[in-house]
């Protein structure tokens, strides 16, 4: 347990600007940098020590919306709205990508790296879930596909399974070795079809398995009475991993405009979610034994992505106002 971890003491310690609104952020596993993707074709690196910004170009034609770090911290991997995945060396001056592959037809909304660091999983708007060799970018195999856009992917901590979630609330557990679908979790509460507006909306925006493997959390939104007008509330579905039973629907009362963009488990057993929408950008904290949150921390601006530093205390958030912010979940230091 990180010394001093206490979400109720959360406070913003740093913020650094970019030129465009930010879409995504990830720390590197060695805790030196935070990388961002933005409403341009760049990957930005911010040095946590001094906020120095380095821009990486040449990998994408359009927005970067997903990021993942190699386990050794040597590379950051980016996914774009152009269907491409690019590998970048994390240290040194800005350089062209190590490699770029044409990975999906359409957006790559989510990336994750396997616990052993050898595999990358990607989910795309083409419904495909693909495993890539992280060392050379070769396709290893495709996993069970989805009929609609894939919104989120995650490796199970034990490294045998990949979880993938889509727009209509289908959450698949696929076997890495065979690619076959093992189980499907019903996350349909996270999907809305609004007949008046004739739109599908919602989706499984984030997946997070608790470190002990007991809980599978799927985040998104519900009560979407006006999808086109951003009227919806954040929701987390908490499944028992073994039984697949939906144990809890975790809510945040009073947040009438919000969607869970990302979930991370904290070392104290809390589940942290980033909610953003009409009610602002908010970090929300739940315990697995309660439906309602026990704390929420308002961020200065709407945020689209969040990540937890390896120290378990710092939280990065990628904001619409063109800033990446670092929030510390502990008491202020002198």
């Amino acid at each position: 347990m990180p010394e001093g971890l206490d979400p109720k003491l959360a406070h913003v310690v740093s913020q650094w600007p970019h030129d465009r609104p930010l879409n995504a952020c990830r720390f590197d596993p060695l805790g030196r940098f935070v990388f961002c993707g933005s409403e341009d074709a760049l990957v930005e690196r911010f040095n946590l020590a001094d906020g120095a910004r380095t821009l990486f170009t040449g990998g994408h034609e359009t927005w970067v919306i997903s990021l993942a770090s190699s386990r050794d911290g040597a590379q950051i991997i980016s996914g774009g709205c152009d269907g491409k995945i690019s590998w970048w060396n994390t240290i040194g001056d800005a350089a062209p990508p190590v490699r770029t592959i044409e990975a999906h037809k359409g957006w790559i909304r989510a990336l994750d790296v396997s616990p052993d660091g050898t595999l990358l999983v990607s989910g795309g708007n083409d419904g495909r879930v693909c495993l890539w060799n992280i060392a050379d970018g070769k396709l290893v195999r495709e996993l069970s596909s989805h009929t609609r856009h894939v919104y989120s992917v995650a490796f199970h901590p034990q490294g045998k399974f990949v979880l993938s979630g889509d727009l209509i609330g289908v959450l698949k557990q696929s076997d890495i070795a065979s690619g076959a679908e093992v189980r499907t979790f019903d996350a349909k509460p996270l999907h809305t079809y609004e007949g008046g507006q004739q739109v599908d909306f919602g989706g499984i925006r984030s997946i997070a398995v608790s470190p002990d493997g007991k809980w599978l959390a799927a985040g998104g939104l519900y009560k979407a009475s006006n999808p086109l007008g951003s009227v919806h509330e954040p929701l987390v579905l908490l499944f028992n991993w073994e039984t697949q039973k939906l144990e809890r629907q975790q809510i945040a009362e009073g947040i009438t405009g919000g969607v869970i963009w990302r979930l991370r488990w904290l070392a104290d057993g809390s589940l942290m979610g980033l909610s953003s929408g009409g009610s602002g950008g908010i970090l929300i904290f739940w315990k697995p034994d309660a439906d309602k949150d026990y704390f929420r921390f308002g961020l200065p601006n709407l945020a689209r992505d969040m990540d937890l530093h390896p120290d378990g205390l710092q939280v990065a958030t990628a904001h619409y106002d063109k800033h990446v912010r670092i929030t510390r979940l502990a008491a202020k230091t002198a």
């Binding site: 359409g106 507006q197 004739q198 739109v199 909306f201 999808p227 086109l228 007008g229 951003s230």
Partner: peptide
């Protein structure tokens, strides 16, 4: 053809529609 009044998530809805 409905609906394009996309104050929210314009790009997702335009992909679909």
């Amino acid at each position: 053809h409905s609906n394009y009044d996309t104050h929210n998530e314009n790009f997702n809805f335009h992909i679909e529609q």
